[in-house]
Amino acid sequence: MSVLVYTENWDGKFKKLSYELVSYAHAIAGMLDTETVAVSVGDVSDTELTALGKYGASRVLSVQDARLSQLVNQAYASVLYQAAIRENAQVVVMANNFTGKAVAPRLSVKLKAGVGAGVAGLPLSVEPFTIHKKAFNGKAFATIVIKSPVRILTLLQNSFGVKETGGVAAIEEFLPDLAEHDFRTSVEEVSKITGKILLTDAEVVVSGGRGMKGPENWAPLEELARVLGAATACSRPVSDEGWRPHEEHTGQTGKIIAPNLYMAFGISGAIQHLAGVSSSKCIVAINKDPDAPIFEAADYGIVGDAMKVLPEMIAAVREMKGE
C-alpha cells in the first residue's frame, strides 16, 4: 500500500510546488498509515531526488525515457498507472495545474479511481474517503465521498504549504512499458516567456482592472510588483481589450490562483473575477467606488484612485524593505 505523488520538474529542478505535493501526500499517508512514494519523470539529479525525502517521500521512482520530454497525456497517464499498480497505491496526488488536469482524467479511467479535483485541504476522513472542496466556482463548498478503492486528488497550488519532516528518499529506477500507441501527439513548436515570475507560482500578485484606465498606466503597477517580488495579473476586460496579455487574466475563465497576497487595483470584483482569486490568503483592494463588490471579498481596502495610491505604496514598501 502507498500514497503515490507525481513530482513534476522544470528543467531538472523541483519547485516549491513539488515539495508541497510531497508534504500533502505524506500527510495523507499518515492518515492511511502507509508510505509516500514519489514519481519523477526525466533527467533530475540524485541530490534533487533524494531531497524529496525531506518532505516525507520514503522512495522515489525515477523514470527516464527520452520520449517523455514532452507532455504526452496518454503516455504520462500510462507511466503513472504502472507506478500506481506496482506500488499498490490507494491515493495518487498530483497538482491541479496544466499537467495534472491533462493526466488525472486519463489516469482516473485506467485505475477506475474517483477524482477529487482542485482540493485545498486534507480529507475529512479516509473511511469513507471524504473531501471538502469548492464547488460552483467558489460560490459554495461541497462534501464529496470518493467510493472507489483508489482515489486521485489534484491539489490547488499554495493551499497546503511545505512541511519538512526530515529524511532521505531512496531512488529506484523505474522502466514503465510504453508503446508507440501512447505517443500520438507531438510538439512541433514552442514559444516561452522567460524571466518572469509565473502567475501560478507567485506568492504575491499585483493585479489591475479597468480602473487603471489604459495600458499606458501599467508602469507603476509593474514597479510595485518588482519591489514586492510579485507577478502581475489582470481582470478579463483588461485582457479582452488587449491592454495586457491573455496569460495574465485571472478569474473563472482565466487562471485560478491562490497566492498569499492578492492586490487588486481598479478591479470592481465581478463574481467571475472573484472565482479565480477568492482562495488567496489575503486580498487587498484599491477602488474608487466604495460599493464595489471587491470590498466584500477583501481583507484590507482603500477607497481611492489607483493611480494616486500606487506611487505611495511603492514608496512605503521600499521604505519598509530599506531600499
Binding site: S108, K112, A113, G114, V115, G116, T130, A135, G138, K139, A140, F141, A142, T143, I144, V145, I146, K147, S148, A285, F295, E296, A297, A298, D299, Y300, G301, I302, V303
Partner: peptide, 18 residues
C-alpha cells in the same frame, strides 16, 4: 465513483478593514 453528499455556502467573510 464520486458522490456529492452535502453542500454549504461559504462562511461570511470578516469585514474588510478600510
Amino acid at each position: 465513483l464520486v458522490e456529492h453528499i452535502r453542500y454549504e455556502l461559504p462562511p461570511a467573510k470578516a469585514k474588510c478593514r478600510m
